[in-house]
Amino acid sequence: MNGKTALRALALSLVLALGAGAGSLLLGAGAAAGAEVKIDNFSFTPAKLEIAAGTTVTWVNRDDIPHTVVSNDHVLFKSKALDTDEKFSFSFTKAGKYPYFCSLHPKMTGEVIVR
């Protein structure tokens, strides 16, 4: 391989690498935004979650016993009893504060703040 060919190969590699990087960035931006709340040891973590409008929040029960995720108005969202490792998701489209709790253990509370 002479010097000119090597230079071309290097330039091509750079272009491909840049293209791949930009592509993955674009894909990442296009994917649905998400946030996760962990349920463990009778608590929601984080207890207060700030997100942008349009974000889907997923609650994952990592506790050994079942829990639920219910909005304080009992209307907006209400999960079934989530057993260990089960998930519940809800998409928040409007700005505001959304307090919620576990209906089996009402002392377990959390809040989603949508900006």
């Binding site: 016993i65 079934k80 009893a81 057993d83 209906s103």
Partner: peptide
């Protein structure tokens, strides 16, 4: 009333 009679599993 609490769980709308959902099918139970696990500890419940």
């Amino acid at each position: 009333l609490q769980l709308a009679g959902q099918r139970l599993k696990g500890v419940l």
